[in-house]
Design a protein around this nucleic acid. Structure first.
Lengths: 150, 150
DNA sequence: TTGCCGAACAAGAATCATTCTTATATAGTA
DNA sequence: TACTATATAAGAATGATTCTTGTTCGGCAA
């Protein structure tokens, strides 16, 4: 199992940008490299701090915009902070969620096949797992329709 | 399939509060009722607006505190806005997440059994699903340990 | 290579959700 | 009924994120 070299990643980055008509700027390149080189799940500010060495006067706004863009085109996954205020689900029966990445809507669905997924040993033994759910992400019907119209 | 009556819900609410040594205040009761009576996934401000009729000078801070409390003791589920800044995952290989509800940490794990879950027809037909993941929620080992010490 | 134009950027103000601070009120209990 | 810890209201403060404005620069055409 051989992971991509830094050069291959960079090549892919350039290709993807061109394919989408996005300019390849030094800032974007630096942010991309900082991302690829990171373990865990960096926050915008973490990335900002990492690129600041090479770009002392990069604006944090640029990092926000760029990471957002990268998530949209699939360079990275957004795993926290979907940009919405806190929301609560009063339905305590077991169910699952579809999240629209465009409008933020969360749709509930029941799917008995998903209700009894077995928690991996690692977590059973060391953590207190209180919920096991399947989360679908994508674009909802309403947003697809809107996009089709325009 | 008979859902609980409003009175039964309220009774459960009182019992649970007493069991945990929490005061039963009119504000909490109103917030609880607004929650139980809601479809979808209300935001803190939605609940605030609903209870404002009955409590014109309730502070929104009270709603924040109370909803947070309710999520902790299991009256509702928090489904959005876990209170953290945006975080990105550069690992684009299929993997799943455990989220610690106490410290916010997200742990990655691979679990081939979870990688090929079949998307329900409903979503296949109307939405563009780009990701299917299992999310475990609970308390992580570190937080359990900390809690044990104190 | 040079010049142009729209996209990208920096800086800082503005916004929005959320939390904190402080003084007051009240639920549960002796 | 009085007491004490808990809960509340009000508004200031914070932190992440986005917007506004003027400037710069990447990519393409001449």
């Amino acid at each position: 199992m051989m992971s991509k070299t830094s050069k291959e990643h960079l090549e892919q980055f350039r290709t993807q940008c061109k394919a989408r008509g996005l300019s390849i700027t030094p800032q974007r390149t630096a942010i991309y490299e900082a991302l690829i080189g990171s373990q865990d799940h960096p926050r915008t500010e973490d990335i900002y701090n990492r690129v600041k060495t090479a770009f002392p006067d990069m604006s944090i706004d640029t990092v926000y915009r760029t990471l957002c863009l990268f998530a949209e085109i699939g360079f990275v996954h957004l795993v926290e902070g979907y940009g919405e205020a806190k929301r609560y689900d009063p339905d305590m029966e077991c169910h699952h969620h579809f999240r629209c990445m465009r409008c933020g809507r969360i749709l509930d669905f029941k799917e008995p096949r998903f209700d009894a997924l077995d928690v991996p040993e690692r977590f059973k033994q060391t953590c207190a797992v209180s919920s096991v759910k399947v989360v679908l992400e994508g674009v909802c019907d309403q947003c697809l329709q809107k996009a089709g119209e325009s």
